[in-house]
Structure formats: structure tokens, C-alpha cells
Design a protein around this nucleic acid. Structure first.
Lengths: 332, 332
DNA sequence: CTGAAAGCGCTAACAT
DNA sequence: ATGTTAGCGCTTTCAG
């Protein structure tokens, strides 16, 4: 069944209607090459009258780049990725590029399949999260001839462009902050670390800094599945059941930390005097809770922006460290 | 400067390498038409060896549909839209379709420009938020010949497909619930209603139900700009400064309501005994706060899914009401 | 079962 | 300043 089907107006029809050649119409429309004021008006009039919409599929095939930028992201539930898309799409739209996306659910095999599908559109660039990809993905990307940007990670080897911050360093900074504050019995509540390799790097950096200070994680609780507020609440509840004497907890991100904070509020656990909480990402909501969350603000929107700018400008391969900022907050 | 540029392998090269005609390669690759087991193997071997990736730009031009689905959404900060995208992209990916998107920032003029840009890709369908569009947008869409889905709204006239729920009815249900609970001095805290027309419809439905019960809004505070937790906190603070005797507040959505809830927590205002709070959307986070938020759960992911399914199936024009569910919570 | 050839709608030389 | 023409890489008749 074919509902709504009108064969779209073509450039040839416009040319006909305006009484000029096809290339003239093309020139006028792209405002490229020369043509008289008068032809321009005739062409534009025909375009208006017929309601012509250029066909970029044909245009792309005939000329060079597709001006399509492909995002293959792990998730849309984790606000991190919508933030990146937001930053990128603003820049892309301003530069006549189009964003295309698919969601891997943190599955590398799925990522490989989706990258393959994306490459079929001959995008100008492919944007991925982090450096951990299958051999197949890497091979395709290298062979594709299109720009590749790996985002939100800096701990690893980039294929081409890398934009973000060091998760390892963020983990270290978090630990150092808690140690400096005098906390010693520190626990960790995280989500599925096998899949979210950036969260794993933060965890590792955190442990590394503890180790360097002669300390170690006093307890650890991993919530199966992706990060969520509920996961953080449950995770903290379970962690405290096993290790009641903790004085601080580091969470895999702010969603998890908020869950932990809500748990403390509900149970009447004084924060930070009885238990300090530390998150990661610096979400806006953490700034508005009764006690602002102690966390690290990450450059999510900026990561998307910068990556898009580099791609649009066809900049040389490089890694851009956008850094992060520790927010002291009131929960640690 | 052109970094990374290898002219991609073409179908012709594969044909050559496999010693067969182009059309044979095409048949094998799309598993359509007939060919011998032997040729199939030869072709696949060449495809593997050369690392051939079909060019869908060319494929689309030569055949029928683009299998591209365009989303023109107001925002990526409001979790509602990532949720819709998430639901849709799962279905689209499973059906070999690609999602393309742009962000309007709730600006109808911008929406028009972006729809025009999208149409240039000859998408199978265009998905928009709600029914309020410029005349230009409507005209283009009608002339485009592609499917149109208007999402998250049912109060208006659809162009083709409509999937979502009635915001007006949701607003009414919210008011009726609060009245049933015995609240009488009810205030409203919202965000920019001119731009978010769906929030405006909820507001109107809410007032309508109050009116039907012989009541009326006791006070109203509009936070300039998009909805946010901070906006809700500030909005409630200001509203209470002007109307200290309210016994309940209806918020334009859960983000705003959470801000209000945090304000109450911070100020020690007992909820709901001193002040009841009611939101809209049923976000997960509202289920985990010390007191679960009273709100209405909306079918965001399902809206994306159903819309995608209808488009993929090329279903007849129709409006699908996915309804909503009132969650009693503990804040009202 | 397979190949040749004609487009799809547009851009980019190349003429004029 | 403007028209003509040869592709871009693929799908799709249509022969064989």
C-alpha cells in the first residue's frame, strides 16, 4: 500500500519551466558560478511555483561529500549522549551538515554492525564513544576514508580525531579530593563496568590514586545493567548493608550518586557527616538538590561542538583535551 | 586539506574481481533474483577481499525509498525527545532504516528551515512534535509525498499519522486528581508556554477542569526559558512568595516538579501536608526520590516505537492514542 | 542463471 | 552568461 505519493519535482522540470538549462538552475540554486540577475529571478520564480526541493541524494552522488555526520552512540538514556548530540547538532546545522545516529546499547558487536550500516551512507565523519571497538569496526573505519572522531575519552590510541577528557584522571582527581577531605573508608557503587569502559577507567583511576596514598577501596557494589538513579539507590543500600562503617562513597556517575543521595535522605543518614557522596558528570540537577552534589563536571556539550567543528573544518588528526572541573558541592 | 581519502571500492570493481556482471553482484548482495551457489561464493569472496561497502546514496537514487527517517525535534535537553528517539531507533534499526535528526529549539521558523533541509534527503517519513507548525512547513510536508508523523500530541488535526496522548486530557486528569484529594488553593509553575505548546495544552486542560468544578488557579508563575529543575525550584520559590497560602502546585513537567520538591526539602516545607506537588511525565527519577512524585506517566518510548512501526509498515493515516497513567505517588 | 544497458537527479567540466 | 554532456554507483528491465 502506498499512501501519499507524488513524484517529486526535479531540477530538469524547473529548468524547463524557467526556460533555461539544467546547469543554470544548479548554479543559481547553489549560488556558484555566474548568471544574470534576470535568469536568477526566472529560476527562483519557477522554483517557488513548482515547490522544488533539491534532491541531496542525487547531489551527493554527483559531487563530493555527503555532508552527513554519523553518530554511533551507546545510549540515549544516559543524558551524556544527548548532550553530545546537542552540542554537535548545533554546529552541524549551522554548517549545512546532517546528523545521523544509531544506538549500540553498549554492545561492541552491535556497534560494528551499525558502523557498517552508517558507512553505506558515505558520511563525512563517524563519531563514536571512546576507543574500545572490535577489530572489525577498526578495520572498516580505517578503510572507509572518512573522518573518525572518538569522543569522551582520552585514555587510549585514537584512530584520527579524539575529543573529550581523561576518565582516568577524573577518577584520580575524585579520589584525591576525598582523601584530602579526610575520608578513609571509601566505597564504590557502580554500574556494569564491562560495557561502560569509560566508567571502568574512572574506577581504575580512582583506585590508582587511593593506592598511591596507601589506601584502597573499602567496599564495592556493582549494580547490574546501565546506570540509573534507582541503581544508585539500591547499590548504596546493599553496599552499606555489607560495609556499615564507610565514611564516603564514589559513584560511577551522577545518576547513581543521586540515587545514593535519595537513599540517605530517605533513611535519615546525615550527608556528609555520616557518609560523604561523590558523583561524576556535573549534571544540572545535582546543582539544585537540597545539598549540591560533589562531583566532576564534564564537557559533554563542548565535546560534541568541538568534534563537529573539527570535522566541518576538516582539521588534521589530533586529540583535544577539554578537561573537567571538580565541583566541591556539599555532599563531600 | 584532505585527511584520509581512499576512493571507496565500487560494485563495478567487485564485479570485475569476481569475474561476473554488475547486476549479478547486485542480486547476490540483496539476495534477490536468482544466481548459482557458485557465483554467490565468488562474489562474496570478492566482497570480503576488497572490503566492499555498498553505497546507499547510489542505491537510493537508483531504486525507490531512502529508508531514512527524519526527526525534527524541539530539544535534546528535555529527556522526552531522547526517549522518543530511543523507542523509534530500536524499531528503525531492526528494519534497516536510518534515523536523521535536527533540533529546532522550539522555534517554528527554525523548524520550517530544518524540515526543508530534511526533505532534501527524500526521507521515508518526517517525524515532528505536535501539530503546531508554520504554513510553510505544512505546505512542504504535504507536497513532499513522504509520510508525516506528529508525535506526543492528539489535540489537533493531523496531517497523516499522529501518535501520542492528549495533553489536554492529561491536564484535566491532573486537576481532577488534586480536587479529589481535597486541594483547593492550587497554583501553577510552568516554563515558556508560547514555545512548548503541549505544555500549554496541559495547562489549559488543567484550568478547564478546575473551572468545571467551580474552582480556578489561585496563582501562577512562569519561568522564562525551557523547563529545568532549577526553573522549577525558582518558580516555586517565587510563587510561594506571592501566594503563601497555596495547598497544592501543578508543574509543567517532572523536571520542574523535582525542582519544586527540592525547594520544599531545603526549606523544610512538609510535602504534601503543607504543600502538595504534582508533575507530568513520570520520569524514573521521580520514582526514587524520598517521596515518589505524584505525576502522570506518558508513553514517550512507546510513541517513538509505534510511530516507527507505522512508518516502516507504511500503515494508513491514523491517530494512535497511547494514553497516559496517573501515578499517585506521595507528594499529593 | 547471467550480462548489457538504460536510467535515478544532479554536478562539473567543457563548449559556446 | 548559459547550454550540452558525461558521469556519480547502483538497481532494474530486458535479452540471452
Amino acid at each position: 500500500m502506498d499512501y501519499r505519493h507524488q513524484p517529486a519535482v526535479t531540477l530538469a522540470e524547473v529548468a524547463q519551466a524557467a526556460g533555461v538549462g539544467e546547469s543554470t538552475v544548479s548554479r543559481v540554486l547553489r549560488n556558484h558560478g555566474s548568471f544574470s540577475r534576470k535568469t536568477r529571478d526566472r529560476v527562483m520564480e519557477a522554483v517557488e511555483r513548482l515547490g522544488y526541493v533539491p534532491n541531496r541524494i542525487a547531489g551527493t552522488l554527483a559531487s563530493a561529500g555527503s555532508r552527513l555526520v554519523a553518530f554511533v552512540i551507546p545510549s540515549l538514556s544516559n543524558i551524556v549522549f544527548p548532550d553530545v548530540l546537542r552540542g554537535a547538532s548545533a554546529v552541524l546545522e549551522a554548517n549545512q551538515h546532517q546528523a545521523v545516529f544509531s544506538v549500540t546499547d553498549y554492545d561492541p558487536e552491535r556497534e560494528e554492525a551499525l558502523v557498517a550500516a552508517m558507512l553505506a551512507w558515505r558520511p563525512t565523519a563517524v563519531m563514536l564513544a571512546g576507543f574500545e571497538h572490535t577489530q572489525g569496526t577498526l578495520k572498516m573505519l580505517r578503510a572507509s576514508g572518512c573522518r573518525v572522531a572518538e569522543l569522551l575519552d582520552l585514555d587510549g590510541t585514537a584512530l584520527d580525531l579524539a575529543v573529550g577528557f581523561s576518565n582516568r584522571a577524573a577518577g584520580r582527581a575524585s579520589a584525591e579530593f576525598l582523601l584530602r577531605r579526610g575520608y578513609r573508608r571509601i566505597g564504590y557503587v557502580g554500574h556494569d563496568l564491562d560495557r561502560d569502559t569509560r566508567a571502568a577507567k574512572r574506577h581504575d583511576g580512582f583506585c590508582e590514586a587511593l593506592g598511591a596514598a596507601g589506601a584502597a577501596l573499602a567496599g564495592r557494589e556493582i549494580h547490574a545493567g546501565p546506570s540509573s538513579v534507582e541503581g544508585g539507590r539500591l547499590g548504596l543500600e546493599r553496599l552499606l548493608a555489607r560495609y556499615p562503617d564507610l565514611d564516603a562513597v564514589y559513584f560511577s556517575n551522577d545518576d547513581m550518586a543521586l540515587g545514593g543521595y535519595f537513599h540517605c535522605l530517605a533513611r535519615g543518614i546525615p550527608v556528609p557527616s555520616a557518609l560523604a557522596l561523590f558523583g561524576h558528570n556535573g549534571l544540572d540537577i545535582g546543582r539544585v538538590t537540597p545539598q549540591p552534589l560533589s562531583t566532576i563536571r564534564t564537557p559533554r556539550v563542548a565535546t560534541g561542538q568541538v568534534a563537529a567543528e573539527l570535522v566541518v573544518a576538516d582539521a588534521p588528526p589530533q586529540a583535544v583535551d577539554l578537561g573537567f572541573e571538580l565541583i566541591e558541592g556539599a555532599t563531600a
